[in-house]
Lab assay of single mutants.
Amino acid sequence: MTEYKLVVVGAGGVGKSALTIQLIQNHFVDEYDPTIEDSYRKQVVIDGETCLLDILDTAGQEEYSAMRDQYMRTGEGFLCVFAINNTKSFEDIHHYREQIKRVKDSEDVPMVLVGNKCDLPSRTVDTKQAQDLARSYGIPFIETSAKTRQGVDDAFYTLVREIRKHKEKMSKDGKKKKKKSKTKCVIM
């Protein structure tokens, strides 16, 4: 069974824990209790493949930012979460993405942009803004509501699919490099 290491990042209060708990335990946590770091595991079937999701729910508070490099190193894919009623959390996505790329030393890291709290009427981040940002990053965008469960499975499952595509691409690139290195030079 394939294991996928997913990391949920975003500013404090955007609903990272609520999304994760909704996926794992099928219930909505409405009281806000700032996370330092929590880890969850769940076995699911995605596109006919049974897999184990190892999900790291991270601290959004700035005082825990020193811990970010460590979990970013171990993560295979990242859910970059903002709240649709919090423009600052949307603007912060850029910083999370840049930090992930720096730590992973790669421009090509599996990510999904997630606009959470889409059940709320007080939207300050337009869907088109988020779609445009995701398009500019070359990553999928999904709106979710941890409260109603809308888009929750889709967000995590899409990230797994992005990781699969990335692994497939990397193995193809690896095979191309191996083929090239088999060419021999004969000096007579």
Rank of each mutant, 00 (worst) to 15 (best):
Y64F: 10
T2Y: 04
G174S: 14
M188A: 15
T74G: 12
A59R: 13
K147V: 12
V7H: 05
V103M: 09
D119L: 01
V81D: 00
F156H: 01
M111A: 01
I142D: 01
G12L: 04
A130R: 01
N86K: 02
D47Q: 05
K179E: 14
Q61M: 10
I46Y: 04
E107Y: 11
G10E: 00
Q61G: 12
S181I: 13
R102V: 03
K178I: 08
A11C: 07
E91P: 04
K117D: 05
G60A: 07
R149G: 15
T124V: 10
D119I: 00
F156C: 04
G15I: 00
E168C: 14
Q61P: 11
E63W: 02
G15T: 00
G151M: 08
K104A: 06
A11Q: 08
N116Y: 01
L53N: 02
D119H: 01
K175S: 15
I24D: 14
N86D: 15
D119V: 01
E91L: 01
K101S: 05
Y157H: 14
K177I: 10
V45G: 09
T50V: 05
K16V: 04
K104S: 09
G48V: 02
R73D: 12
Q43I: 06
R68H: 09
K180E: 15
K182S: 14
K117N: 11
Y64W: 07
F156V: 15
Y137C: 12
R73T: 10
V14Y: 01
L19P: 00
D108T: 09
R102D: 02
V29P: 08
L56N: 12
I187F: 13
D153I: 15
T2C: 10
M67N: 11
G48F: 02
G77C: 06
Y4E: 06
D92Y: 11
R41C: 07
I21Q: 15
E63I: 01
K117P: 00
L79C: 01
G151E: 08
M111D: 00
T74N: 13
L79M: 07
T2H: 10
S181V: 03
T35P: 06
R97L: 15
E63D: 13
M72N: 04
G151V: 05
C118A: 07
Y32Q: 08
K180T: 10
A11M: 12
I187G: 15
R41I: 06
I100E: 00
R73P: 06
G48H: 06
Q22D: 10
V160Y: 03
K165P: 01
A130Q: 03
D153H: 14
L56P: 10
V29S: 11
L52M: 13
S89E: 02
N85I: 09
L159R: 00
G10W: 00
I55S: 10
F28P: 06
C185V: 02
D119G: 05
I139D: 05
S136A: 08
K101Q: 12
R73E: 14
R149V: 12
P34Y: 03
V152L: 14
K178D: 15
L19F: 07
S171C: 14
Y64N: 14
F78Y: 07
L113Y: 03
K147R: 15
K169A: 11
E63K: 07
F82L: 07
A18Y: 01
E76R: 03
K176R: 14
K165Q: 08
G12W: 02
I36Y: 05
Q70A: 04
T183G: 15
E162P: 00
I93D: 02
T35D: 14
V114G: 01
L113R: 00
I46W: 03
G77E: 00
Q99R: 06
S145K: 13
G12H: 02
E49A: 05
D153G: 11
V186H: 12
V81T: 05
I84R: 10
K172C: 08
K128V: 13
G15P: 00
S89M: 07
A59N: 12
K177E: 15
L52G: 12
K101H: 03
Q150S: 03
D153A: 14
D173P: 09
S145G: 06
I46Q: 01
S145H: 14
D33H: 07
G115Y: 03
K178N: 14
T127D: 10
Q43C: 08
T20A: 12
V7N: 10
Q61T: 14
E3Q: 06
G12R: 07
K101G: 03
V103N: 09
Q70P: 09
D47L: 01
